[in-house]
Amino acid sequence: MAKYLWDLDLENIPLGWEETFRDALRICPDGEITPISYSSYHGEKLERYLYHPVKFRDRLIELFNADKAKAVNLMESNTISDSFLNQLFKIDVRLFNILDAWLTPDDEIEGEMLDPREMEQKLLDYRVYFQCEDEELVEIYNEKIREYIPLRIFSLSGRRL
Score class of each variant (00 low, 15 high):
A2G: 10
A2L: 10
D9C: 07
D9H: 14
E11Q: 15
L15K: 06
L15A: 04
L15N: 03
G16I: 10
W17I: 01
W17K: 02
E19I: 05
D23V: 15
I27H: 04
P29Q: 12
D30Q: 14
I33A: 15
I33V: 15
P35S: 14
P35M: 09
Y38D: 01
S39A: 03
Y41V: 11
G43T: 03
E44L: 12
L46M: 11
E47R: 14
R48H: 09
Y49M: 10
L50G: 10
Y51A: 06
Y51F: 13
P53W: 04
P53I: 04
K55W: 01
F56N: 14
F56E: 05
R57Q: 08
R57G: 05
R57Y: 14
D58W: 07
R59H: 08
I61K: 14
E62D: 09
E62V: 00
F64S: 11
N65Q: 12
N65C: 05
D67A: 03
K68L: 04
A69Q: 14
K70V: 10
N73D: 13
E76D: 12
E76L: 13
E76S: 11
N78E: 11
F84L: 04
F84Y: 15
Q87T: 08
L88A: 04
I91D: 00
D92Y: 04
V93A: 02
R94I: 04
I98M: 13
P105F: 03
P105D: 05
D106A: 06
D107H: 11
D107V: 04
E108S: 14
E110M: 09
E110C: 04
E112R: 15
M113A: 14
L114K: 08
D115A: 06
P116K: 08
M119D: 02
L124V: 13
L124A: 10
D125M: 00
Y126C: 02
E133P: 04
E133V: 05
D134Y: 01
V138P: 00
Y141I: 02
K144H: 11
I145V: 14
I149F: 03
P150S: 10
R152H: 01
R152N: 04
R152A: 02
F154V: 12
F154G: 02
L156H: 00
L161P: 08
